[in-house]
């Protein structure tokens, strides 16, 4: 017997996993790998921002910390890629804990929390751009050396399956959380902190748990990024682009819903590709479309694509029943 909510996760994962059997285009795999990396980063955002209601504008900080930890350990210290991955995830969790402790204890919420996360990410960007350790403005290159031990794969479908495995694990973890007491507490904190406190919820601890899990997931996405592109610089690692991607995907797909980030990431980037194929090489046109979609979703379907589907299904089933 499969527990509540896992069936859709398994189905979606299977569908993506089987694509190499029917598709062999490299651009498709490039596209899918990037979307999966974004979906993983966005799942981190979704845990904190979607389920927990603490909107972050600075998830780049976790993405960048993951990416740089993995790169620095491998290039400067010759640490094994998989061990670097574990260290990077731990670093993301720790960063979450520190930022969470500072800002949640200071009582920052809503816009203030969003701004302080943005400021932390920007601070790290400026530091990474100036520091020797991170290669400064030139960035860091990972040595090309394909092989499982180095977590590098010359076959794109193989790397896609690796990214998919990460996403699958993040989906299962999120679903587990949603089904648990911690998940209920997190939602309660999002909905009404005072009421949650009155019911015995330790609000600060719940938020800290959420932000460190969130940081860990998004850091893992940063690791995948460097393992795929073998290059990182401060603009990629800590730039506002990934903070926005991590936020947009769940917003569009359905914030607070387990499959929201994945669905949102595919929809947005699918839409982006379509737009580019129509509009040609107009710079920024895909982001303009994303922005309009974001505003339209907030205005007309605040729970995103999945929310819309659920609403339609409810209407359909209640009509069928009547």
């Amino acid at each position: 017997m499969i527990g509540r909510g896992y069936l859709p996760i398994i189905l979606v994962t299977l569908v993506i996993a089987l694509t190499p059997l029917v598709i062999s285009s490299n651009s498709f795999f490039n596209f899918t790998v990037l979307v999966l990396i974004i979906a993983l980063a966005a799942q981190g955002w979704n845990l904190l921002g979607g389920i927990g209601g603490q909107t972050s504008f600075g998830h780049a900080m976790f993405f960048g910390i993951g990416a740089y930890t993995a790169s620095i350990l491998q290039t400067h210290l010759g640490v094994n890629a998989w061990i670097s991955l574990v260290a990077a995830i731990a670093a993301g969790a720790l960063a979450g804990l520190i930022v969470g402790f500072l800002s949640f204890r200071a009582g920052l919420r809503g816009s203030y929390f969003a701004l302080v996360t943005l400021a932390f990410a920007e601070l790290l960007r400026v530091l990474a751009n100036a520091s020797e350790l991170t290669g400064g403005a030139a960035g860091l290159l990972l040595k090309l050396d394909p092989g499982f031990a180095n977590m590098q794969f010359s076959s794109r479908p193989t790397f896609m399956l690796l990214a998919l495995a990460f996403v699958f694990v993040s989906l299962v973890i999120t679903q587990k959380i949603v089904n648990s007491r911690f998940g209920a507490h997190l939602v309660a904190v999002r909905e009404n902190e005072d009421a949650a406190k009155a019911l015995g919820v330790d609000v600060l601890t719940v938020k800290l748990k959420a932000i460190s899990l969130s940081g860990a997931m998004t850091a893992a996405a940063g690791v995948l990024y460097v393992q795929y592109f073998l290059y990182i610089d401060s603009g990629i690692a800590f730039g506002i682009w990934i903070s926005i991607e991590a936020l947009l995907a769940p917003m569009i797909g359905g914030r607070g819903m387990v499959l929201g980030p994945l669905i949102g990431a595919f929809t947005l980037h699918g839409l982006g590709e379509v737009t580019k194929s129509f509009a040609g090489r107009v710079p920024g046109i895909d982001l303009m479309v994303f922005a309009v979609v974001l505003i339209v979703v907030i205005a007309f379907a605040s729970s995103g694509i999945l929310g819309l589907i659920r609403k339609l299904a409810d209407r359909f089933s209640s009509k069928g029943g009547a």
Binding site: T55, F57, G284, F290, V292, I298
Partner: peptide, 22 residues
Amino acid sequence: DDGNILLITLGLSILIENALLA
């Protein structure tokens, strides 16, 4: 909803910036 406003103005900012870029 204040949270929505923040996100809408974020959307506007992306829109304006990229419209200028285009």
